[in-house]
Design a binder for these strands. Structure first.
Length: 305
DNA sequence: CTGGGGTCCT
DNA sequence: AGGACCC
């Protein structure tokens, strides 16, 4: 079998996925619920999250609560509490930021972490860094997470769900093909039912079948997002890493008309009013957007000709 | 095989 | 605007 990428770690991208996140948050808040069949979704009568114990009994997401109770007598059904989940999420991302400055908050319970070059700092392998992250989250938040590490985002996604719950999976560049042969094409991030059935018409059933196709085929039948997925499966980074860094400073420029000729013009109300209004609306926006995460202050109001 | 909310692409 | 896909 041909090797898709020669180098083990040209870069290291981790994908973290919390295990049964909503239920884990409830169990962390109410330890008596740990190890039990627990689900969330009482208020709508539909199961939206469930513990692994409940999964083992055959309960599924989207089921009616009444059916879940029949299949799994004694299951504890809770109202969902999204404020709590948001708090756990923020605390989880804060832990991740201690390990790497480059984090992509992908969803409430998922994140990408760029670990490239951090082995020397922690004096251990990428896999062992993932273990440290997993342990820290467990100790501080008492929730369980699974982590995958590989050389692209798509491969890291595959790695994080390779072993769940509480798994750690590393896919170095020179071992990609060994993992992709076990991955169904419809299980690849970004390949939906539509594209999966198209690819199956060409006898592409696994992620490896897809990765081994030549690029001309892919460009002929598929659009941009799928070309990116194809490249990422082969170990070539193609999907942008989106860091959501809150800006250190924000500036707002406003031009005056007519242009001022001398300093005294600047104090004329009809010219400064629009500027004051735009500052006011920008400030309101910042207060809403940044809330309690930042202190807001004005550093300078500068004038240019 | 449930569904509301979101993003990215054509 | 509509399609595909994600959580």
């Amino acid at each position: 079998m041909q090797v898709l990428s020669v180098h083990s770690w040209p870069q290291a991208i981790a994908h973290l996925d919390a295990d049964a996140f909503f239920v884990s948050c409830e169990q962390a808040s109410m330890p008596a619920l740990k190890g039990k069949c627990v689900a969330v979704g009482k208020e709508r009568g539909i199961i939206i999250a469930l513990s692994y114990e409940a999964k083992a009994k055959g309960v599924k997401r989207g089921m009616f609560v009444s059916d879940a109770k029949r299949i799994c007598p004694g299951i504890i059904i809770l109202d969902s509490n999204h404020e709590t989940y948001g708090l756990f999420s923020v605390r989880m991302f804060e832990i991740l930021k201690r390990f790497s400055p480059k984090i992509e908050e992908y969803s409430v319970d998922e994140a990408f972490i760029d670990l490239t070059g951090l082995r020397r700092l922690y004096s251990c392998s990428y896999e062992e860094i993932a273990v440290k992250i997993q342990n820290t989250i467990e100790q501080e938040l008492s929730i369980s997470v699974s982590i995958g590490i590989s050389i692209t985002k798509v491969l890291a996604k595959i790695a994080s769900k390779y072993k769940k719950p509480h798994g750690i999976t590393a896919i170095p560049g020179n071992k990609i093909h060994l993992y992709l042969s076990n991955i169904l094409i419809e299980d690849v991030w970004g390949i939906g039912p539509n594209t999966a059935s198209l690819l199956k018409k060409f006898d592409i059933k696994t992620a490896l079948d897809f990765a081994l196709k030549n690029e001309n085929f892919v460009k002929k039948y598929l659009s941009k997002p799928y070309i990116q997925i194809y490249k990422e499966l082969k170990g070539e980074p193609s999907i942008e890493f989106i860091e959501k860094i809150s800006p250190k400073s924000i500036s707002k420029a406003k031009s005056f008309y007519p242009p001022s000729q001398k300093p005294e013009d600047l104090i004329l109300p009809h010219q400064t009013m629009p500027f004051a209004l735009s500052i006011y609306s920008l400030t309101l926006f910042l207060i809403m957007a940044l809330k309690d995460r930042c202190f807001l202050f004005f550093k300078a109001i500068s004038l240019a000709s």
